[in-house]
Design a protein around this nucleic acid. Structure first.
Lengths: 163, 163
DNA sequence: CGAGATTGTTTCACATGTTATACATATGGA
DNA sequence: TCCATATGTATAACATGTGAAACAATCTCG
């Protein structure tokens, strides 16, 4: 390190926060450090992170969900989810039927094979999570999760303030 | 909500952490909540988040950087960075010259136009960051950044423990 | 009832993420 | 010198992120 200056001062004279103090970068790095633990495990089952999120959402629901509901729970954007559902259907893990009440909707549920996949993947996935929890500290992790929720809350809805 | 059960207990009998307690999901949501503030601003200048990261890295460096150095600082993978550099070169914002000492490397620097772009974008970008800091609390934000660094540290290097 | 607005989902177009591989240049010995 | 290996970067191939637009079914209100 070169000193205690909190911001860089490049030749252009532009005052710009260094990456080390950038919240988006910090969140990105932390997430990558975490996901690096899970990806290889999921890959051995032919699953991507996002496909796994969809399977998880349907597992936790206990009843068929429409696409919008799954999008919210998995935090996937509609175009991504649409493609992923096509794949999961072809893999025989997810079943999609039209909603009789509102034919714009399709209702999603796990197939038996989908449930077996979840049953195979979940234990090791939870074990990896347990390792992370142990390494970082369970209470500390809870506090971190709470603070991130606090950040979301703080940032929710101050759209047009800089006008 | 249905109760105080910390984990879902779906019909399959699979014990799986709900999304609300998932660290990867929390990091994803927090990052998205943050980036949602910056993306429209960057878009008005024709910049994506990643292109902006490259410009920032070169601004802060003060000297030409090779591609690997930029990849590390921006946390971009080599294939993504390679494509982005092609774009930034075509936009006239970044200059790439072969390293005479080691011709495998190319050295990257901002063009004058690149510096002008940074000078245009940086002030509002910092202003948005300031709003976030104010909303969430500066000290609280520092603490959150420190904890995420702690998470990275805790997760660094325990690759083959679950064998 | 019927045209217009709304909603759920998909498609398009382009940028990036991710892994594996190719390519060129460097480097370290036999 | 020459080969084997290592290193820096780029390409390939596929999956996802992102914003905009298309599409079909539904709703609303005159």
């Amino acid at each position: 390190m070169t000193g205690t200056t909190p911001t860089v001062d490049p030749p252009t004279g532009i005052d710009l926060r260094p990456f080390a103090r950038s919240l988006p970068m910090a969140l990105l790095r932390a997430r990558e450090a975490t996901m690096r633990r899970f990806r290889p495990h999921l890959a051995t089952h032919g699953l991507t992170e996002q496909r796994w999120r969809v399977l998880r959402a349907l597992t936790g629901a206990g009843e068929p969900l429409d696409v919008g509901e799954v999008a919210e729970r998995t935090f996937l954007l509609a175009p991504s989810l649409s493609r992923i559902l096509t794949d999961l259907e072809e893999l025989g893990l997810v079943d999609r039927v039209a909603d009789t009440a509102d034919r714009r909707r399709s209702l999603l549920s796990l197939t038996d094979e989908g449930r077996r996949m979840v049953a195979r993947v979940a234990p090791e996935s939870e074990a990896i999570y347990g390792q992370i929890e142990q390494r970082f500290g369970a209470a500390r992790l809870d506090a971190l999760l709470a603070e991130m929720q606090g950040l979301e809350d703080a940032l929710a809805g101050f759209e047009g303030e800089a006008t």
